[in-house]
């Protein structure tokens, strides 16, 4: 699949922001006054930046409000609802912390739950697709949620939780790479099933429908990004999980350490998310003799 920058920015930053908001809603960190203003501002900033980026790849973003209508069947619609409700519910938590100096569990707990639910809905947009076997697996929601929780824990400065989550994240990343590689074959779609011609013999593409490219090929058959797969997999595990854990373990806890751990984590998160798209193969590639 095409690793569009807008979608990578959307999933990485909205996950990070919503993960941090979940900790703030739960009261794991409870800043007050000006600190609360800055901390909530940062969390909202990441979440809103990410959610806004998601509208950049739309053909007609002016109609985006229509995405709220189909929550019964569509994960994208559910994500739209969940994100807006969680951000609205988080507002009183922020205001009470800024002006009254206390943590509101009444608003905070449901808002935290909805923040994580939003991350889950985002992951299900990808995990629901049978056409992309690598995504169509429990590791997709597990990874998205663990990324959100790890990034949130680093931003919260909760070192012990962040280190534990980094370990979980590293293991999950390796598991998702290992399990993901066999998913396309396990789905059983081949050029023979795609064309129904397997009953005659082995199928290969003789001539594509046109000499140039098309929307489907640009969007779903992305080969360049897979070239450096092994290097990027290594970078993603080292930067997203290993280096943040080591920084938090070895360096004294202060804002500089948090920033360093977060910078490492984000580099790894971008590498992992790039691969998440670039390595995912869509079954439509079979009609083009490619994957």
């Amino acid at each position: 699949m095409h690793p569009a920058p807008s979608v990578i920015i959307f999933t990485v930053f909205s996950g990070l922001g919503l993960g941090f908001l979940a900790y703030l809603g739960l009261g794991v960190v409870h800043p007050t006054g000006l600190d609360a203003f800055l901390v909530f501002g940062l969390a909202y900033g990441f979440a809103v930046l990410g959610l806004l980026a998601s509208t950049f790849h739309l053909g007609n973003p002016q109609r985006a409000f229509r995405a709220f209508t189909q929550w019964k069947t569509s994960w994208l619609s559910r994500e739209a609802w969940s994100s807006v409700i969680s951000l609205l519910l988080m507002a009183p938590v922020a205001l009470i912390a800024i002006f009254l100096g206390v943590h509101s569990a009444t608003f905070g707990f449901p808002a935290a739950f909805l923040a994580l639910l939003t991350v889950f809905c985002t992951s299900m947009i990808y995990a629901q697709l049978k056409t992309v076997p690598r995504w169509n697996h429990w590791t997709t929601p597990a990874l998205f949620l663990t990324f959100a929780l790890t990034g949130g824990a680093i931003l919260s400065g909760w070192a012990s939780a962040a280190i534990a989550l980094c370990v979980v994240l590293g293991v999950l990343l390796i598991a998702s790479y290992a399990l993901g590689d066999g998913r396309f074959a396990a789905r059983g779609s081949t050029m023979e099933t795609a064309t129904g011609l397997g009953r005659i013999g082995k199928v290969r593409l003789f001539e594509p429908p046109h000499t140039g490219t098309n929307y489907l090929m640009r969007e779903m058959i992305h080969i360049v990004g897979r070239k450096h797969s092994v290097k990027l997999r290594t970078i993603s595990v080292i930067f997203a999980a290993l280096l943040p854990a080591l920084s938090l373990l070895l360096l004294p806890m202060n804002i500089g350490t948090i920033a360093l751990a977060l910078a490492f984590h984000l580099i790894g998160a971008f590498a992992a998310r790039w691969l998440f798209f670039a390595e995912a193969e869509h079954v439509v590639g079979l009609y083009y003799g490619a994957r």
């Binding site: 739309l58 007609n60 947009i125 697709l129 049978k130 439509v284």
Partner: peptide, 14 residues
């Protein structure tokens, strides 16, 4: 249609 492209991703047949 907002042009999000998700339906094209969901279709196996292009």
């Amino acid at each position: 249609c907002i042009g999000c492209g998700l339906c094209a991703w969901a279709c196996p047949y292009g």
